[in-house]
Design a protein around this nucleic acid. Sequence first.
DNA 1: AGACCATTACA
DNA 2: GTAATGGTC
Length: 477
Amino acid sequence: MKKVNLVWLRNDLRIDDNSALYHAAQDKNCAVFALYFVCQKQWQEHWVGSNQQALIFAALSELKQQLRKLNIPLLILDAGHFSQVPELMQQVVTQLKVDDCYFNREILLNERERDKQVYNRLKDQVKFHSYNDQTLISPHKIVTKEQQGYKVFSDFARAVKSYLADYPLQNFSSPKAKEKSNFNFFDFTQLAEQQFVIDKASIIKKEHTVFSAPSLPEINEKKIHQQLERFCKSALSDYAEQRDYPAISGTSALSAALAVGSLSIKRCYTLAKQSVNERQSQTWINELIWRDFYRSVAWHFPHVVKGHAFNPVDKQLTWSNNTEHFAAWKNAQTGIPIIDAAITQLRQTGWMHNRLRMIVASYLTKNLWIDWREGERFFAEHLFDYDFASNNGGWQWCASVGTDAAPYFRVFNPASQQQKFDPDTSFIKQWLPALKAQPAKNIHKFETLSLPNYPSPQVNLKATRQQAIEAFKQAKG
DNA sequence: AGACCATTACA
DNA sequence: GTAATGGTC
C-alpha cells in the first residue's frame, strides 16, 4: 500500500514556492492529494466581497488544472463555515486513508482556531507537517529584546533584514509530476466532491450603483511570474520615484495574486534582490516588509483582529454617523476630484492605487469623521487584493489609532495631494468624465468649481481638519 | 507615509 | 507678491 500525503490548501493557491506542497510531494513513492474547503459563510463574516470570492474560485479552477498536470488531484469541498471543517477533514482523511497532512500556517485568530480543532481531532490518526509560508519570516521569530512584537515599522524592518542576512530565504520550486496511477488510486465518487463552476453572474451580486462588475486580475501562475519579472526588470529601479503617481503604472499590481496566494511573498523578495542593486530594491522590499509587519501586529496584538484599534485612544473617540456623508464617499460623490476618481477606480477595477488609499482613508476618517472600521469594511468588500492584516493596519494607520500610526495631527489635504501627485489631473480625468473638459487649474481649485454634473465639496476641509485634531486632543486628555 | 503658519529673503 | 525655512500641531 502506498503512503498517502494530503496537502491542505488555504491561502496559498499556487504550485511554485509552496512549502507544504513541495514537502508533501518529495517522496517519490507516495500518492499526493490536494484539498481545499470553500467557506462562503465564513468569508461573509470576514467581509470578503464578491470580487475576491470570484477571484478565489478562478484561482481554484486554474490550480486544479495545473495540479492535474502533476497528477495531483485537487478536491474542492464546500464546508460553508470553518466550524464544519474538522468533520469534513475527518471524512477525507478516512476515505483517502491519509497518512500525513501538510499545510502552511496562517496567522489570524479564526484560522488558527480552525486549525487547532482539526489537529486535536485527527492528531492520533494523521501526522501533521506545518510550514511558515505566508510571511518572509514567522511572526514569532521577530521580537524585541523584551520578547514582544514590534510596534514601530522601522525597527521591525531592521530586525527582518538582519535576520534574513543570517538566515537567507529558501524558495521551493514546483514539485515534479507524480505517477498517473494516483488518479485512479481511490474511489472519488464516495466523496461528495463539488465541482465549482466559475459563473461570475451567480457570484457577483449586482449592486444598485452605476458601477459595473470589474474583470478578474490575472491568476495564471506563469503569467503572474512574467508580471513579476517584468516589474523587477523594468520598473523596480524607478519604483521609489514613480509609485506615488496614480496616473503612472509604477507599482507591481501583484497584490491580488499575493492576497489569494497565487504568488509567493518569498519569491517576490528573492527576485527583487536578484534583479537590481540594494538601493534600487529597497523601497519595494520595504513594502513587502510592511506586509510582514501588519501580520506580526495581528499575531502579537490579537485585539486588533477583534475589531479593536491598537491604540486605546480609539475608545475615547465618538465617530460621526452621518450616513449621507458616508454614502457620498462610497459613491464617488464627495465633490473632491481625487477622492471621487479613486473610489471610481476601486469600484470599476477592484483595485486602488496605494497613494489614493491613504488619501480617501484620511478624508473619510479625519474630515468626515467616520469610523475607520466602516472604511475598512468597504475596502474589504470591493478589493480583489483584500487582506485583513494589511487593510486593517492601513486603516488604523490613517486614522491615527494603530501601531506606528500617523500622528493625529497629520491630516492629508486632498487639494495639495492631488496637486502633488496628479498635477496634470490625467488620473482624475481618466475616471471622472464630468471633469474631462475642465483645465487642470480649475480641477485643483475644486472648492470654487461649480458644474451642473459634478457635486460641490461636502464639508469644509479646513474646519473639519481642525475639529478632528481637537477631538483627538480631547480624547488623549 | 503632512500641513499650517510665521518669518525671512528675495523679485 | 512668493518661494524657501523652521517650529508647531
